[in-house]
Design a protein around this nucleic acid. Structure first.
Ligand SMILES: [Mn+2]
Ligand SMILES: [Mn+2]
Ligand SMILES: [Zn+2]
Ligand SMILES: [Zn+2]
Lengths: 134, 134
DNA sequence: ATTTTTTTTGTAACGGTTACAAATTTAGAA
DNA sequence: TTCTAAATTTGTAACCGTTACAAAAAAAAT
């Protein structure tokens, strides 16, 4: 019994081949892939996979709390199989997205009366590799 | 001499009627409008304004540092005439976007060697008005 | 006035996402 | 197993926000 299958069944989601493949991909690849990256990677092993199913599955996983959809920039959505609390930074040169830990308590001065539920933190800059290639 | 005109000229951008109107709108309305919100608002006073000009102008203002483009969620880009350092929170119920101040120094533990340049912080939750209407 | 450059405009194209109905798969009953 | 109903997947077409493009208009230079 695979981990992906268990996670899906725990949430009452039928563990179809497509859903297991997408979830397994997200949990094995922490590269914050786009839809097309996932599609290209899975297409080898699952040639019949359609983009519609991929979109539907990613939305399903997101709403089930099994994945995050990150909108760092408006023109691309990236997905993350790591749903724990963490920040993201994107390299302006190579486009890579990386994780970084957040402090236990982030002192945010939200507007008076605003009930905060979640926070996303995105940083931009230059990653180590690109900085060393300057 | 209007404020918008001065700001544009200071940056070597020709202060056309369209550019001044868009910049004035952004500086007078701190409601983080979408493209269509701006378009609808300006269309009364400037019926000939085209969407293409609006898109071009918003990109011009953003790259000139006179406006911010916020991608809080993937399906809509919002603009902000306040380019100072501040965070944003969005109400899940009414969709409103609000400002909040950021601490002087935010202790972010970026990946080793990553050179951070800017940070965007987005919070989700329920605004005061919507919470009081529960 | 004439020419040149810049900007704006309207239309068409583009690309990512979604809607939809048919085909397939799956689960359960007989 | 075989049949039936429900759920899922698939491929195509539509949708919609954005961008490309060329003509028109406006502004600046000569
Ligand atoms: Mn991540
Ligand atoms: Mn703001
Ligand atoms: Zn890089
Ligand atoms: Zn609200």
């Amino acid at each position: 019994m695979t981990e992906a299958k268990i996670l899906l069944e725990e949430r009452g989601i039928r563990p179809t081949q497509q859903r297991m493949a997408v979830l397994r991909y997200l949990r094995d690849n922490r590269n914050h892939p786009t839809v097309d990256t996932i599609y290209s990677s899975l297409h080898d092993r699952m040639p019949s996979l359609s983009r519609t199913t991929l979109y539907n599955t990613l939305r399903l996983l997101s709403s089930a709390g099994l994945a995050l959809s990150l909108t760092i920039e408006g023109d691309e959505i990236r997905f993350d199989g790591d749903t724990s609390d963490h920040g993201h930074c994107k390299c302006r040169r190579c486009g890579g997205v990386f994780d970084f830990p957040l402090p236990e308590t982030l002192p945010l001065d939200l507007p008076d009366g605003f009930l905060g539920e979640s926070v996303h933190i995105y940083a931009w800059g230059t990653c180590r590799r690109c900085a060393s290639l300057s």
